[in-house]
Write a protein that binds this DNA or RNA. Sequence first.
DNA 1: TTTAGCACTCTCCTTGTGTGAGTGCTAATA
DNA 2: TATTAGCACTCACACAAGGAGAGTGCTAAA
Lengths: 344, 344
Amino acid sequence: MLDERAERVLWAVIKSYIESPDPVGSRYITKKYAFKYSPATIRNIMADLEEMGYLRQPHTSAGRIPTDKGYRYFVEHIIGHDVGYDERLIEELQKRFTHCARDMDDLLNEATQTLSTISHFLGLAMSPGPEGSTLRRIELVPYKEDSIAVMILTDEGVIRHKIIKNDYDLSANDLDEIARYINRRFTGYTIKEIRTELVKELIEDKNLCDTLIEKALHLCNESLNEYGANVFITGLSSILELPDFTDVEKIKELSRTIENKHKMIKLLDRIIQTDGVQVVIGSENPIKEMSTMSIIASTYKDKDRPAGIIGIIGPKRMDYHSVISLVDTAARYLTKIIEEEGGS
Amino acid sequence: MLDERAERVLWAVIKSYIESPDPVGSRYITKKYAFKYSPATIRNIMADLEEMGYLRQPHTSAGRIPTDKGYRYFVEHIIGHDVGYDERLIEELQKRFTHCARDMDDLLNEATQTLSTISHFLGLAMSPGPEGSTLRRIELVPYKEDSIAVMILTDEGVIRHKIIKNDYDLSANDLDEIARYINRRFTGYTIKEIRTELVKELIEDKNLCDTLIEKALHLCNESLNEYGANVFITGLSSILELPDFTDVEKIKELSRTIENKHKMIKLLDRIIQTDGVQVVIGSENPIKEMSTMSIIASTYKDKDRPAGIIGIIGPKRMDYHSVISLVDTAARYLTKIIEEEGGS
DNA sequence: TTTAGCACTCTCCTTGTGTGAGTGCTAATA
DNA sequence: TATTAGCACTCACACAAGGAGAGTGCTAAA
């Protein structure tokens, strides 16, 4: 797409801009990266790159900075796809994980914190949602007066609990029986599958009312109806140390983004569709507030099926190469952990 | 302590400063609050107040702003202790709570969000810790290969789950029996009491090793050893809209404070000792990073014993009177909910 | 005891100026 | 034809100077 010379210039601009967030000029490039061309030539090339949309000037007579398209080209054509392996991350994760057995949410929480401290960006994770969660066991126990505590265990390591109303006035024995029924019938199915099955059945079989089975189905439905992915985002205070966030407006945007888990889930649900490390640069992101940020994320899997997401959120100005390696390492490690543990 | 005239001036300064964060001058006070004295007299009074430490000048020839001591005096002597009742809050909480049965953590999470949207400050809550949590039931079920899922239910509405290693290779039946034993023996005790009991017993009775009872005690110990209070802080993006947070340094401090749950728990553990709405103003707070902030918090209770904390964190410059009412209302409402539900 | 008057102080905003980095263009060069 | 040197031009930024405005403290008068 670009000739080698232009590519090298683009590379130099991005590299330099990542190091420090000042517009980079032609003279600086020739000196720093020992080009065999004079500044004037570089200027011509830069003007070309600007015309093509890879670079832009914050204002006339300033140096150039990369555009989103520039970063995109860089990520796709220049850094190549030799994703590395981040030793430090693995060490840190091992240290944190082996401490004791934990459920997926705890794991992800620790993982985002680790990613954040290593990268200095925001750590990001999403736990398996209804499609990625395989029911392993459900447990129903009477709690207060007229409520039931439900515990849902999944193959992926996600554990959830919930309180539901005991509308049918079921005894402990009833609950045991119901739980046994649900377990017998639905273990091994994903939450999503169970839900669709339930909907179908509850609509069709309105006749078999009041049997224990019907109660079981209703209870099951209620237990699972709120089951959704959790989003973890950590490391705000470390990302604020970056020079990219000296502007208060940017910080506000960022904090709004973080708090809006809903939008974030929608976004990540799209990312989860594709395999491998995904890079979303600036305005490629459908969330407007994130147009100054990039997301690097990858899926971790269980049984070769994408379960959830792990990654980072940072300013567009980041070292994509090493961050991609970092995220890839994290995703692989999580996958390994799930599949090891899942063994049974 | 202060004569009435000085008190009124202090009141006026604080009131005006709360309305907008500009140093307030003598002339402004006479006009706005229709004092019967001239600016010059007010200046004299203000000079006195400054000498006594209730006011200070950001710089010579600027107006005065209240000091922490000034706010303290205001809170204790001027606003009086006729705590109000916040209708809006109750409405909003009811709307959010009745939606469906929830455990304490969910409830607190909703509550902090509500407090935050109403007050525009940070909503703050702490769930019951080991001392405030009464065991109602524990549930042990085999999970994966060599792990056990534990569910802990308390009278206060807190539900926790945890994964522990199945080191003794216990079967589902063993676990049932152990759970029954623990429930029989420890239901109605606080987590803390159970812990001390366990420690005592595990040390003394090293002889009765390998009986089911000993395994039960070990398991119980492991299930409860991490049981701690949760802290909820929400509303960062709304508090950033306040004019008090235009400074990036302040924002950084704030975000560090929020992330440091550990320190926060220590602080709240102190607040929980005292009954009623507590006000911690600026540097009265042992956490240095919070010296520009105030905390208004109160305890919610179960069985007349303080369970946890609900409140807000905001800039020192806040309308203490209405915020105190707000927090008091929230605490009472939570208490009511717990005690209603707890019925059994 | 209170107030009027006045000099003084300090922040903040505006304006002007210089500097430096970097560009685009043109003409000369290899 | 591709590259380079030279030069005029532009713009952000830092700095200083100058007011304006708000507010004070002090002194002397009411």
